[in-house]
């Protein structure tokens, strides 16, 4: 119960952080540059469909794999985003395509399979974390941006996954005994997979 409450709070915090940006843009000015930079970094991760959908897909898969699985997968995700940040200058040109493919695969497996192997879940989470940072930092030289932006990027990379996992967790715990609650998450995963398949096709148009 405590774990769910924490996840719920994390999801709400993520949403509130995003929501704060709209008022922030109108109300704040000098002296808040570091926060602006932080939000800008988080926005890149959360409002770019490619990184957002991949993160949400990973979140859904984590909760489908194991109730409360986010707490188990989170350390791997943190390490992955840090590795992605540190190695971003080495990112290949095909990182964006790779992230779409990984996101599609993650969502499709979450939708189709009834159970998941821990190794597969961890692999997909790590790939999502690393590739998300590769894509977000594409074209930027090492330490070219401010530290606050990097913090925003790394935390934004956590939020997208946490929000997906937390929403799924809330559904499972509220309607846990109903068969459709788990199926509902799988349907959502199939929708995410379909969107990412179309986004993949857009790259060739």
């Amino acid at each position: 119960m405590k774990m769910t409450a924490n996840l719920n709070r994390a999801a709400l915090f993520g949403l509130l952080t995003l929501a704060s940006f709209s008022s922030h843009a109108h109300s704040f000015g000098a002296g808040t540059d570091a926060f602006q930079a932080f939000v800008e970094g988080a926005r890149v991760m959360l409002f770019e469909p490619i990184t957002l959908f991949a993160g949400l897909s990973a979140g859904l898969m984590i909760t489908l794999w194991r109730s409360g699985g986010m707490l188990v997968a989170w350390p791997a995700l943190i390490v992955a985003t840090l590795v992605g940040f540190l190695a971003a200058t080495l990112a290949p040109e095909w990182a964006k395509m790779a992230l779409i493919v990984v996101g599609t695969l993650t969502a499709a497996l979450a939708a189709v399979l009834q159970s998941h192997k821990q190794a597969a879940v961890m692999l997909l989470v790590v790939l999502t974390g690393v590739l998300s940072l590769f894509v977000a930092l594409e074209g930027h030289a090492w330490m070219e941006l401010t530290a606050a932006i990097y913090v925003g990027l790394i935390l934004g990379g956590q939020f997208s996954v946490v929000i997906g996992a937390a929403l799924a967790q809330m559904l499972l715990e509220k309607f846990g005994t109903a068969a459709w609650s788990r199926i509902g998450i799988r349907v959502a995963a199939s929708w995410l997979a379909a969107m990412q398949i179309l986004i993949l096709a857009f790259q060739f148009v």
């Binding site: 199926i183 799988r186 199939s190 997979a193 379909a194 398949i197 179309l198 148009v205």
Partner: peptide
Amino acid sequence: IWLLPVVFPLVMAIGGALGMI
């Protein structure tokens, strides 16, 4: 009842991708 609506969007998106490219 649940599997078919999972299959349809996935496969339809593949068809959509083929059409786009």
